[in-house]
């Protein structure tokens, strides 16, 4: 856990925040090619349901490896998916960053996400806990795992034409 007096981890916290904010900015602006490049090849992007930790053996909202991330982005971009052509527009805010652990080159960071979407003249609001496993590489952070756990993930949702 991060403490205010630990200057080294403060620097890490700042770097992780900057990275995750940059990712959020890409998602709000649908700069998906740049987003795909943030990932480690073995990475998973997961929106779980409820409090499960065993994502492989549970039903998730999505549990994307590199192939499925690419397919998902292609679907968003090609214009054949009526829900994403055009998609809802989004504005998100990320805050309450915490470094959970540092283990070699693996950094676990969590934060809160608030997102508002707009489509058809109506707005919807979502909240999620985000947990990242980032790996430190010579070229900066890569995402090994991102878990976006919606506050009401096991409740009645709406369909999403964007990423959390």
């Amino acid at each position: 856990m991060n403490t205010p007096t630990d200057t080294r981890s403060d620097s890490l916290l700042w770097q992780a925040q900057a990275f995750i904010w940059a990712e959020a900015d890409m998602l709000d602006h649908r700069d998906y090619e740049a987003w795909l490049a943030l990932w480690s090849d073995d990475g998973f992007y997961t929106l779980p349901i409820g409090d499960t930790q065993d994502f492989d053996d549970a039903l998730n909202l999505c549990h994307d490896d590199a192939h499925m991330r690419r397919e998902r982005i292609t679907r968003f971009q090609q214009g054949f998916s009526i829900s994403s052509a055009p998609p809802a527009r989004t504005v998100r805010t990320l805050s309450r960053f915490v470094i959970e652990s540092v283990d070699g080159d693996d950094v676990r960071v969590r934060c809160a996400e608030h997102l508002i979407e707009d489509k058809f003249g109506r707005q919807r609001i979502w909240a999620a806990d985000l947990t990242y496993t980032l790996i430190v590489t010579p070229g900066g952070f890569k995402i090994r795992h991102k878990v976006a756990r919606l506050l009401n993930s096991d409740g009645m949702l709406n369909s999403f034409s964007y990423l959390f």
Partner: peptide, 22 residues
Amino acid sequence: RLRLHEHFQGPMGFGSPDDAEV
């Protein structure tokens, strides 16, 4: 089966959101 379900169904599926839209 879980991965096949996630692929098409639900709020983040490759199918259901387009159904919901129409």
